[in-house]
Structure formats: structure tokens, C-alpha cells
């Protein structure tokens, strides 16, 4: 039996998620694992936008910020359950992406880059300035999701890091599955076609602007969900989640691993989440490193690390 690349990708992900805990020296690694999954989820959204559709956003952290603050603000203000707040946050991010993306995506690539950069800055500006509502730069507390207590009652006892490892892993799996399904669907083909040539795509009847807008909205929802998960897991949130550097991290993760492949991008998210944990030097020089990675990968390994490695190995094998 041969596996399709979709099944192979999901299988690799499931195997990694299930087997890695066997090698964890301490409970702390569940936390790192769940951070990788959360970043992986956001980056999977970037794959749809950048890898499939060939558009670039420099403000996706803005959507993560909307998702995160939805979970922090809605439960105490409106009595909404945190899980519901997550859904509402995603809906809000999607709508904002739709409104902002509509005028921009009719135009060339760099307009989206600039406008999304402005959008991201705007969101983090609002989050830092509206102190009465958001607690300003110090951030605010986020309510408990409450799902772990329910699982406990059912007899499934998990430590907090284990629970978040499992939950974010599940989100990432579903997110990756949807993204992989999209790849071969008519909409996904339309996106990849317009990535190749917008003119050619529109000649064969693809509504290029609408297709790009779809990709932008979907990826915004991914980022928003990732932001919500992060906030609920940390039980607190600061405007940094919407900051410019966070947007840059997302793009770098996708680009490093390979923005054209879901597995590659998650791999990139894994590397860039792990590196600061193992190398303190990396933390100190984070900006220099991120900038260097972006430039070097785009100049020398345009497909990203994982796809380049794979094609190298295939080439050797033949």
C-alpha cells in the first residue's frame, strides 16, 4: 500500500506527538512541546497564505492578539465560556481579515505586506494604549479553560502541561489535516495556480482576488486560534503576542522549514521554538538570527529546509 503525501504527513505528525513524550526527561518538555504545536498551528496558516497563494503578511500577530485578548476579555465582561470566546475571537479575526484584505488583495504582493504590517502595529497599539480595558503593556489574566477538570471527573488525570500538550497537539493535527485537504481541493488548486501566475489563473476562470482573500481569512483564523490557545495555556496575556516581532517569527518559521509544505513549516516552528530554549545565545541575538535566517534561506534555499533536504535525499537515492 502506498501512502499519499497527505497521509504520510499526518502519520509523521501523529507518531512524533505520541512518541516524543517517551523521551522527555522532565514535565517541562510537555510545555515546550505544546508551544511548538501552537506555533505550528499559526505557521500552518502562513503556509496557506504564503506557500499556497504566494502572498505575504507581516501582521499576523495582530490576529493572534485578537484571539488571545478575546479569551482574556470576553469571559469576565460578557460571561462567555473561554472556549466560546476562542470561537468568537476566531470569527472576529476572520471578519477583520475580510474587511482589511478586500481592498488590498486586488493589488500586487507588497501592498499586502505593507498594509498587514500597519494592521499589526495598529492592533498592538490599541492593546497597549487601552489600559482600562486591556491592562496596557502589563497585560492581563486569562480565565481557566476548565476542560482539564472535566477530563479529571471522567477519570482521565493529566498534569497541566500534559493536558496542553494533548490539546494543542490535537488542534495542530486538525489544522494540518484541513490545510492538506485544502491543498488538493479546487480552492487549493486555484491558490497554487495564482501563485504561479495571476494572469494565467484568471484566464482559466479563477477569481484571483476572491481566492487570495479566502487564503488571507483562513490564515487569520489559524493565527487567532493559536493566539487563544497560547493565552489560555499561559493564563495571562501581554500586547507582545500581537507585536511586530511575533509576526516576523511566524514568517521566519514558515520560511525556514519550507513555506510550501505543511510538515516543513511545522518543522521550522519546532526549530525556532526549541533553539531559544537550548541556546541562550540565541535569545540574546534573536533579531540578528531571525534576520539572517530570513535572508539566507530566501537566497540559498528558497524552498526551505525540509523540502530541500528531501529533494537532496531523493536525488542521492536514484
Amino acid at each position: 500500500m502506498t501512502l499519499s503525501s497527505k497521509q504520510a504527513t499526518l502519520l509523521v505528525l501523529v507518531a512524533l506527538m505520541a512518541l516524543s513524550p517517551l523521551f522527555f526527561p522532565s514535565g517541562y518538555y510537555y510545555r515546550i512541546g505544546s508551544l511548538i504545536f501552537v506555533n505550528g498551528l499559526a505557521v500552518t496558516g502562513i503556509v496557506i497564505l504564503t506557500g499556497y497563494a504566494g502572498q505575504i503578511s507581516l501582521g499576523h500577530a495582530g490576529f493572534a492578539g485578537i484571539g488571545a485578548y478575546a479569551c482574556a476579555l470576553m469571559p469576565p465582561k460578557f460571561g462567555v465560556h473561554p472556549a466560546m470566546a476562542m470561537v468568537l475571537g476566531a470569527a472576529m479575526s476572520g471578519s477583520v481579515a475580510y474587511v482589511v484584505g478586500r481592498p488590498i488583495l486586488r493589488l500586487k504582493g507588497y501592498y499586502l505586506a505593507v498594509a498587514s504590517l500597519g494592521f499589526g502595529i495598529l492592533v498592538s497599539m490599541v492593546l497597549s494604549n487601552e489600559t482600562a480595558l486591556t491592562g496596557g503593556p502589563d497585560g492581563m489574566k486569562v480565565p481557566e479553560l476548565g476542560l482539564r477538570a472535566v477530563l479529571n471527573e471522567w477519570g482521565l488525570t493529566l498534569t497541566n502541561p500534559q493536558f496542553w500538550y494533548a490539546l494543542s497537539g490535537l488542534f495542530l493535527l486538525v489544522g494540518a489535516w484541513l490545510a492538506l485537504n485544502l491543498y488538493d481541493s479546487p480552492s487549493g488548486r486555484a491558490l497554487r495556480a495564482l501563485h504561479g501566475s495571476e494572469v494565467a489563473a484568471s484566464t482559466v476562470g479563477i477569481d484571483v482576488a476572491a481566492a487570495k482573500l479566502n487564503a488571507f481569512v483562513i490564515s487569520a483564523i489559524y493565527a487567532s486560534l493559536a493566539g487563544s490557545l497560547l493565552a489560555l495555556q499561559n493564563r495571562m496575556v501581554t500586547p507582545d503576542v500581537a507585536g511586530y516581532m511575533h509576526s516576523i517569527e511566524m514568517v521566519t518559521m514558515a520560511v525556514l522549514g519550507g513555506s510550501g509544505s505543511v510538515l516543513g513549516a511545522i518543522f521550522g516552528a519546532g526549530i525556532l521554538t526549541l533553539l531559544p530554549q537550548v541556546l541562550t545565545v540565541f535569545q540574546q541575538y534573536e533579531q540578528v538570527m531571525l534576520g539572517l535566517i530570513m535572508m539566507l534561506v530566501m537566497i540559498f534555499l528558497r524552498d526551505g529546509l525540509l523540502p530541500s533536504l528531501v529533494s537532496l535525499m531523493r536525488g542521492r537515492g536514484e
Binding site: 514568517v251 534576520g291 530570513m294
Partner: peptide
């Protein structure tokens, strides 16, 4: 950077210039 990447798609060039911007900021910080 720019000349070595000549012919690259718009998105790649944008990422390169953004990378340069982040890199220069990082170096200035140090």
C-alpha cells in the same frame, strides 16, 4: 542579497528586505 536573489518572486524579495531590516536592527542593538 538583492543581486544574488535576482529573478526571485516578489514575496522572496520582500522577505529578504524584511530580514535585512530585522538583521540591521539586531546588529545595531548589539
Amino acid at each position: 542579497a538583492i543581486e544574488t536573489a535576482r529573478g526571485a518572486p516578489v514575496v522572496s524579495v520582500i522577505i529578504i528586505t524584511i530580514g535585512a531590516s530585522i538583521f540591521i536592527q539586531g546588529v545595531a542593538q548589539i
